[in-house]
Write a protein that binds this DNA or RNA. Structure first.
Lengths: 192, 192
DNA sequence: CAGATAAGATGATATATATAATCTTTATTT
DNA sequence: AAATAAAGATTATATATATCATCTTATCTG
């Protein structure tokens, strides 16, 4: 049945929000259109009133995942300063919680590999998110202006790789070792 | 029809070899049992004479992917020395070729995120591969014995993250920038 | 308020999936 | 050489998939 414009708008946003968490939990091929709709309390039939294709949903959900995170980061930086916010971000990123719960975490370790196999429209959203994230990280670094972007890339690569490798290595000792070393390395990077 | 023991053994290895490249190209959910069998010149019906389940195939293919790479690395280290071999490995890892062609590349950026979602048997194979790779990297580092493992983890994390992020960021300028920075950072790591 | 419109539900289609049963053909064993 | 065993082919099953058509029912618009 038809719903009000406001309700439809709300549904639209809910679908995207659910897809953005499912994406990070299950990867691109692991999320089904019907799954997402059901989780939103709807049936699969209405999906194509909202999106032209699954690909379009993934693109929007990718953008939403980055936006959600970056909005939070920008608020944190405004509240406690760019450098302190960056330190919090790093310790959260390289935490056991982040490794265990990808659903609200960073999209890059969660489905960056998947995104690399997807269409240009999805990769473009991903790239925009990475760009924005790198700029935010750079702003929190205390080194010389000229080195900031380079260092931001180094730091992000290190963190992404540590989380991917820790997740893949099961819940054993190795996983924790990788995380702990990631924290040390990242700490050295930002302090120098 | 029945084939000789040798032929069956060959088929078995071919199936695993094909799965190990498909895995890296398409991820765990992207490889289908029938796809793999067809690529091996067989039909899907015979699959369960070779493997108990798709999961068993993925576990074996994961192990095979790491083994293939590490056998090559160990030969290279024997030929030209651990340190020189490590330098080659790093420059190959952070090359455009590796970013563009995951099929014969490192399993960690290719399907580490997928592996993290899979069963313990698959994660165990992955963990064993990471372990062996870290030991090989550590052997090529010229720093103090006590720091080697830590530095190997740092280096691998950095490289994995750079490749994942470069792949996800499309074929634009950002992707190349991430790779180039990865090479600089890795270079600094091994030289110090 | 009446009619148009459209969001979502229901149902259908076509394809893909992992797995299992059965059949065929051949290698192995006796 | 006959009997057996088994690898792979064929076929079947059950489920999942993305997408589309149609129907219902409510909102919006004139």
């Amino acid at each position: 049945m038809r719903v009000s414009k406001q309700t439809m708008e709300r549904h639209h946003k809910e679908i995207i929000a659910i897809a953005s968490t499912m994406l990070r939990e299950r990867g691109v091929l692991g999320v089904g259109v019907a799954d997402v709709m059901q989780a939103a309390g709807l049936t699969h039939g209405g999906f194509y009133r909202h999106f032209a294709s699954k690909e379009a949903l993934i693109a929007e959900a990718t953008s939403a995942a980055f936006a959600e995170i970056l909005d939070g980061l920008e608020k944190a930086a405004a509240r406690k300063g760019a450098t302190a916010a960056l330190e919090d971000y790093i310790s959260g990123y390289l935490s056991q919680r982040h490794v265990d719960q990808p659903s609200r975490g960073c999209p890059i370790p969660a489905f960056g590999a998947d995104a690399g196999r997807e269409s240009a429209s999805i990769r473009a959203e991903f790239e925009a998110g990475v760009d924005r994230l790198l700029a935010w990280i750079a702003a929190g670094l205390r080194c010389a202006e000229a080195e900031r972007t380079a260092k931001a890339i180094e730091l992000l690569s290190l963190m992404v790789g540590a989380v991917v490798t820790a997740r893949a290595s099961g819940d054993q000792a190795l996983s924790k070792k990788i995380l702990a070393q990631g924290r040390r390395s990242a700490g050295n990077l930002v302090s120098v």
